[in-house]
Simulated assay, not measured.
Amino acid sequence: MNMTEVLKEVGRGKRGARDLGFEEAVAAAKMIFDQSATPAQIGAFFLAERIKMESVDELYAFVNACRSHAIRFPRPDSLDCAGPYDGRKSSFMASFAAAFVLASAGLPVTLHGTESLPPKWGITLPDVLREMGIDEGVRGREQTIRAAQQTGVLFVPAESWCPPLGRLRQIRVELGLRTILNTVEKLADYSHSPYLVYGVFHNTMFDRTAQLLQRLDYRKALIVQGAEGSEDVYVDRPTRTYLVENGNAKLHLIDPETYGLESSLPDITWTAAKQLHVTETVLTGEAHMAFINQTILNAGLRLHLAGLFDSVEEGVYTSKSLLEGKSPWQLFCRWREALSDAQVNSL
């Protein structure tokens, strides 16, 4: 099946288009990731899929293709935090601060992302790292892995570890729209993690994502309809989540009031510098209490997800205690130093 034949099937409009079978989707994914299809064909496929909406078979085929092109560094019992690659415009990146709380509790964490992408064009983790003085040096895999081995926190620049994502960037930029890659790239699973927390934006993605994750063999996965489609649960209102475990998906409502953490968020104009400042002040205990509470809630929830504690309450209590003891801040400083050393050594 060539790309012209694929487009004839998926490009007939919302009523006439049909979903590709799994083997057909595998062929389409191969042509796109290998770029044996032309840029015009790839762009047409992305638009047709957006109109039709991707099936679970199609998503599964593209995730497998993405993983087959990715460099993957196994980290047993780790947690993968799959946030939006198109970044943030109006919310705090609680996952970044929470990663150091989790690592302090003994849970390895993998974060990943790229420079900003459409449709949101928000602030991303690479923007925050640049504010820390860490830029190209973070792309050195050996040094990045060494920093993770020293601290428990791994950051993966996805377009470096999965080169086809970098080669497809220009097409995505020119389209300016969400594509199938917005879902797929977050599931490259760079650490072979058994635990996943995955952000979605729309209610319509819950069931489809749950079906997909059941086929990807995670031990436990939490789908979160979080701030700006992120994996971060809210601290000022309840958050809809789906827990995927043992082939089943169950709806759970995470209410911060249940844990005594509900807080009103201050009005902030977010920049990369502000994201970094709030992260650092959360870890030193000097931030607005809403951001401290949001970090505690997200960390506690994930410690329970990964089986380190029998309840979210225990995870919340431990996260609060760790923050008060400053061990996550010390770990953050070690991580920053390790990546800064990596940058110096790469020059």
Rank of each mutant, 00 (worst) to 15 (best):
T4F: 03
L7R: 04
E9I: 15
G11N: 12
D19E: 14
L20N: 08
A25Q: 05
V26D: 03
I32A: 15
I32K: 01
D34A: 15
I42Y: 04
A48R: 03
R50G: 03
I51D: 13
L59P: 01
V63L: 03
N64T: 01
N64M: 14
A65I: 00
R72K: 11
R72Y: 01
S78R: 02
S78Q: 04
D80R: 00
D80A: 12
A82N: 10
P84T: 03
P84A: 14
K89Y: 03
S90L: 03
S91M: 01
F92A: 05
F100Q: 11
A105N: 09
G106C: 07
L107S: 08
P108Y: 05
L111A: 07
L111M: 12
L117W: 00
L117A: 03
P118G: 05
P119G: 07
W121R: 08
I123P: 11
D127C: 09
E131M: 11
G133H: 09
G133R: 06
I134F: 08
E136H: 08
V138F: 04
V138N: 10
G140C: 07
E142P: 02
R146F: 05
A148K: 02
Q149A: 14
Q150Y: 03
G152S: 06
G152R: 03
P157L: 06
C162I: 02
P163Q: 07
P164V: 05
L168A: 06
R172H: 06
L175W: 11
T179V: 09
L181H: 01
L187A: 04
H192Q: 08
V197E: 12
G199R: 04
N203A: 12
T204M: 10
M205P: 01
F206G: 02
T209P: 01
T209W: 00
L213Q: 08
D217H: 15
K220G: 01
I223P: 07
I223C: 06
E231Q: 15
D236C: 04
T239R: 06
Y242R: 14
G247Y: 04
L253E: 15
T258D: 15
L261P: 12
S264D: 14
W270D: 12
W270P: 11
W270Q: 08
L276Y: 04
H277L: 10
H277R: 10
T279K: 05
T279Y: 07
A290E: 10
F291A: 05
F291K: 03
I292N: 08
A299T: 10
A299W: 07
L303Y: 04
F309D: 09
V316G: 10
Y317D: 15
S319M: 13
L322M: 14
L322S: 14
L323S: 11
S327K: 15
A338W: 09
S340R: 12
